[in-house]
Computed example of a mutant assay.
Amino acid sequence: MRATQSEVGPRIVTRPGAPVKRSRRRSAVGHVAMMTLATGLVATMALPAYAFAPADAEGNFAATDATELTKAGAQKVAVDETAATVSIAQDAFAATPQSEIDAADAADAQEAAEAARAAAATSMTTYAESFTGPSAADYLADSPYPSFSLPSVYDVALQYQGVPYVYGGATPAGFDCSGFVMYVYAQFGISLPHSSTGQGAAGTRIALADAQPGDLVIMDGHDGFYAGNGNILHAPYEGASVRVQPIWTGDYYIVRLGI
Rank of each mutant, 00 (worst) to 15 (best):
Gln159Pro: 03
Ala157Gly: 11
Leu158Cys: 13
Tyr183Pro: 00
Tyr167Leu: 07
Val156Lys: 00
Gly162Trp: 07
Ser149Leu: 05
Pro172His: 06
Ser143Cys: 04
Tyr154Ser: 13
Pro146Met: 05
Val166Ile: 13
Phe180Arg: 12
Pro144Val: 06
Ser178Leu: 05
Tyr165Lys: 14
Tyr183Asn: 01
Ala173Ile: 09
Asp155His: 15
Tyr154Lys: 14
Cys177Leu: 04
Gln159Cys: 10
Tyr167Glu: 06
Ala157Ser: 11
Gly168Cys: 09
Ser143Val: 03
Gly162Asn: 13
Phe148Met: 03
Ala157Tyr: 00
Ser152Ile: 02
Gly169Thr: 08
Gly168Val: 08
Tyr167Cys: 05
Tyr167His: 10
Gly174Ile: 04
Ser152His: 13
Val163Arg: 02
Pro151Phe: 05
Thr171His: 01
Leu150Trp: 13
Thr171Val: 13
Tyr160Asn: 12
Met182Ser: 12
Tyr154Thr: 11
Gln159Thr: 15
Asp176Ala: 04
Gln161Tyr: 08
Pro172Trp: 07
Val156Thr: 03
Cys177His: 01
Leu158Tyr: 10
Pro151Asp: 12
Ser178Asp: 01
Val166Arg: 11
Gly169Gln: 03
Gly179Tyr: 00
Ala170Pro: 03
Val181Ser: 08
Gly162Pro: 06
Ala170His: 10
Pro146Arg: 02
Ser147Tyr: 14
Ala157Trp: 04
Tyr160Gln: 13
Val156Met: 09
Val181Asn: 01
Pro164Thr: 08
Met182Pro: 01
Asp155Met: 15
Asp155Val: 12
Ser149His: 02
Val153Thr: 14
Gln159Asn: 14
Pro144Arg: 03
Ser152Phe: 07
Tyr154Arg: 15
Phe180Ile: 14
Ala173Leu: 10
Tyr160Met: 08
Ala157Asn: 14
Pro172Thr: 04
Ser147Gln: 06
Ala173His: 04
Phe175Tyr: 07
Gly169His: 12
Gly169Cys: 11
Pro144Phe: 01
Ser147Lys: 10
Val153Asp: 00
Val156Ala: 04
Val156Asn: 03
Tyr154Asp: 08
Val166Lys: 10
Ala170Trp: 07
Tyr154Cys: 13
Ser149Met: 01
Pro164Trp: 00
Pro172Leu: 03
Tyr165Thr: 07
Ser147Met: 07
Ala157Asp: 05
Ser143Trp: 00
Gly174Ser: 11
Gly169Ile: 07
Tyr183Gln: 03
Leu150Lys: 12
Val163Tyr: 01
Gly174Trp: 02
Met182Arg: 15
Val166His: 02
Ser147Asn: 14
Asp155Cys: 09
Gly168Gln: 05
Ser178Trp: 03
Tyr165Val: 10
Val181Ala: 11
Gly179Arg: 06
Val153Gln: 00
Phe148Cys: 04
Asp142Trp: 02
Tyr154Phe: 15
Leu158Thr: 15
Gln159Lys: 15
Pro164Ile: 06
Asp142Ile: 04
Ala170Leu: 08
Gly168Lys: 05
Pro164Gln: 07
Ala173Met: 10
Tyr145Ser: 02
Gln159Trp: 05
Ala173Cys: 09
Ala173Asn: 14
Val163Asp: 02
Pro151Gly: 02
Ser149Cys: 06
Asp176Arg: 10
Gln159Ile: 10
Phe148Pro: 01
Val153His: 01
Ser178Cys: 14
